[in-house]
Write a protein that binds this DNA or RNA. Structure first.
Lengths: 360, 360
DNA sequence: TTGAAAGCGCTAACAT
DNA sequence: ATGTTAGCGCTTTCAA
C-alpha cells in the first residue's frame, strides 16, 4: 500500500509539497523548560511531581510552571515509563465488547482509571485460549496491570498471569483456585431472588435454563437455582444447559425442555436475558403464553428488555460497580503488592416486570 | 488508604512476609539475549526487526531467536517508544461507551489496530468541550493517533488537534471544515430509504423527529429527510427537533408533534432508535396504534429493537466497518503524513420490520 | 554482516 | 533546596 501511495502521489495529491510545509511543532522537552526557567532539569522534574510537594521552593515552582505553560510542555510518558517502569496504563480483556454486559463494566473501569490518571487498553479476546498472545503484547507494553473479564473455569491463563508476575484482577468470575483477586455479582443470591419471586407469584413447577457449564457464571447460577429450590423444599421442574449465552441456544434449550417434560413447567429461570429471549421464541412456537402459561425470568437487565412484550423480569447486577471495584482492587495492589487475593461479592437486584406476573 | 493498609497489615494479612517471597521474575532485556547468543545488542535489535529481513545472517538470526525464546524475551515497548517515537497505541474518544452504537465501532477499530500490532486506548468523554484535557493526556502518552467519535459541530477541538500535529480521524461526523479525514454513514441516503419505504406502504403524511441540531447527524438526517420529501414532491407533516438522542426526548418531541398538528401524521421518521422508542411511548399514551394509525421508523438498528412490539423498522449503518475504516485512514496517515483529509461515506441498509407495515 | 557508541526524555540516588 | 550524574532498554547512525 505504501508503494501504491508513493507511485500515485503525484496524480492524487497535487498539493503534496504545499501541505508538507505544515510540519508538526517540535515537541517541548523538560530541557527546554529547565532552560527557560533557568534551573536544572532535575529541579523541573521535582517541581512538576505532584507526589513530592515542598521539595522545591515556591518561587522556583512558580517560575517552572509558568515556563512550562508558556512553552506548552507535556511530560513524555514513554520516557518516564522507561525510567520508572510505570506506564499508567491498564489492560482489559473482554470476550466481546458488543455483548451489552461489558460496556457498563468497561465504563466503570475507565472512570476509575481516569480518576487515577491511567488509561485503559482494551482487547477483544474471543476465548481465554486465545488470550495468551494478547497478554504477552500487553506485558510488552508494560501495562501496570490487567483486568480479565474473560470467562472459563480452571484457566491456564491464570497460571500464566501469576507466573509472569503481572498484577491481575478477574471480573465476573471468581478465580476458583483463589489465587487472583476478583469481583463478582452474587449469582446464588440472584437465583434465590428469582425463585422466591416466582413462588410468591404462585408458581410451583420451576425449571432452569442453565448457562454453559464450563463457564463460572453458568455453574454458579445453576447451583444457586438448585440451592434456592432445596431451601424451599421444591423439586426442580427440569434443568437444561445451553451451549452458549445466546438467543439461539435459549430457543433450543427451551424446546428441549418442553419436549422432555410430560407437563410443561409453569415458570423458567434463565441464566441470562438472551437465553430468556430464546425461551420466548420457543414458547411462542409451542403456543404457550407468557406469563399466562409460563413465567420467564432472565439475568443482566440488558438494554431494552423492559420494552419487549411482555417486559422481561430479570436480575440487574451492578455492572458499573463491578468495573470500578475491579479497578480499585488493581490499583490497591499496584501500591502494595503484598495484599492477599480477595474476592468482592456485589449484590444484584431483582427487577420485576410483566413476564412473571402472578398466576390468575 | 495506603496508610490504613500499612497500619492494619499485621491484623489483616498475617501471611504478608511469606507472600512477599514470591517476587516477580526479573525482566529479560535485549542485553540478556545478546549475551546468551554471543552477539552485540544491536545485532539482536536488527535480527528481531521484522521490517528489515536479511540484514542479519540466517544462522545468527536462528541463534538469537532461540536464545530469545529460551529466556522468554519480550521487547520493552516503552523503551522502543522513547527511541522511535512510536508507541503502537491509538486513542479513541467516545461520548459514552454504553451507547450501543459505539461498541461495534470500537470493535472494528480494535480489530484493525490489533491486526497492525497496535492497542486502543479508550476514553469516555461526555462532551467535546471536556475532551481537551483527555487529548492532552493521550498526547503525553505519545499515542500514534486519535480517533474522535465525539460529536458536535464546528468544534474547537478540531483546531486543537490540527495545531498539535496529531494524526486524527473523525468518525460518525464529517468534519465540516474538511480539515480532518472522516468516516460517516450516509445519512441522506438513510432518510431517503425510509421515506421511500413509507411511501410504498401507502403513507402520505410523513413527519420527522429530528436529532439535536448542534450535532452533525442531527442536521444531516433532517436535511436528508427534507431532501427526500422534496424529491417526491411531498410537504412535510411536521418536524420537531429533540433535545437529545434519548427515549425521553423522543417521547416529548412526539407529544409535541401530536399537540401541534391538527391531524396527526400517518408516519414518523425518527433520527434514531431511542427516539423512536420514545415515540412509541407517546403514541401509546395518545391512543394511537403502531403501525395501524402511525408508522414509526428509527435509525441504528440497536440490539433488541427487532424484539419489541411492534418490531422497529430502522436503518442499519455499517458500524463495524465505520470503525475499521477509520482505523485504516489513521494508519495510512501514520505511514504517509502528506495524505489529504478525505471523507469516506459508507452505505447504510434499510431493515424493514412491523412498525411500518403498509396501511390496510 | 556485525560491533561500537550515542542518545531518546525522564527520574532518582547522591552530592553539595 | 538545587545541581550532578547515571542510566532505564531500545534503535540507529557510523565505522570496521
Amino acid at each position: 500500500m505504501a508503494y501504491l501511495q508513493q507511485t500515485f502521489a503525484r496524480f492524487l495529491m497535487p498539493k503534496k509539497s504545499t501541505r508538507s510545509d505544515a510540519k508538526p511543532p517540535a515537541p517541548v522537552t523538560i530541557r527546554d523548560v529547565a532552560r527557560a526557567a533557568g534551573v536544572h532539569v532535575s529541579t523541573v522534574s521535582r517541581a512538576l511531581d505532584p507526589r513530592r510537594p515542598g521539595s522545591v521552593s515556591a518561587e522556583v515552582v512558580a517560575a517552572i510552571e509558568s515556563a512550562a505553560r508558556r512553552l506548552g510542555y507535556r511530560a513524555n510518558r514513554a520516557a518516564s515509563a522507561l525510567r520508572t517502569g510505570r506506564t499508567h496504563t491498564i489492560g482489559v480483556l473482554v470476550p466481546d465488547i458488543t455483548n451489552p454486559v461489558f460496556p457498563p463494566i468497561l465504563k466503570g473501569i475507565e472512570a476509575y482509571a481516569a480518576a487515577r490518571g491511567s488509561f485503559v487498553l482494551i482487547a477483544n479476546v474471543a476465548s481465554s485460549a486465545m488470550a495468551r498472545p494478547v497478554v504477552e503484547r500487553m506485558l510488552a507494553h508494560q501495562v501496570d496491570g490487567v483486568i480479565l473479564a474473560i470467562t472459563s473455569r480452571e484457566d491456564p491463563l491464570v497460571d500464566f498471569m501469576i507466573a509472569s508476575g503481572v498484577n491481575a484482577v478477574m471480573i465476573n468470575r471468581a478465580d476458583e483456585s483463589g489465587r487472583l483477586p476478583s469481583v463478582v455479582s452474587d449469582d446464588r443470591l440472584a437465583m434465590k431472588l428469582v425463585v422466591d419471586h416466582l413462588l410468591q407469584g404462585g408458581r410451583k413447577r420451576i425449571a432452569h435454563l442453565a448457562g454453559p457449564q464450563n463457564v463460572p457464571t453458568g455453574v454458579g447460577r445453576r447451583l444457586g437455582y438448585e440451592q434456592a429450590m432445596r431451601d424451599r423444599g421444591l423439586a426442580s421442574a427440569g434443568i437444561v444447559a445451553c451451549d452458549a449465552y445466546s438467543r439461539d441456544a435459549g430457543r433450543v434449550a427451551m424446546a428441549q425442555l418442553l419436549a422432555t417434560s410430560k407437563k410443561p413447567p409453569d415458570s423458567v429461570v434463565c441464566c441470562n436475558d438472551l437465553v430468556a429471549l430464546g425461551a420466548y421464541d420457543a414458547l411462542a412456537r409451542a403456543g404457550l403464553r407468557i406469563p399466562g402459561d409460563v413465567a420467564v425470568a432472565g439475568h443482566n437487565d440488558m438494554l431494552l428488555v423492559d420494552l419487549i412484550s411482555p417486559p422481561l423480569t430479570t436480575v440487574r447486577p451492578p455492572h458499573g460497580e463491578l468495573g470500578w471495584r475491579a479497578a480499585q482492587l488493581l490499583f490497591e495492589r499496584l501500591e502494595d503488592r503484598q495484599l492477599s487475593p480477595i474476592t468482592v461479592v456485589l449484590r444484584p437486584e431483582l427487577v420485576v416486570r410483566g413476564s412473571t406476573a402472578p398466576v390468575a
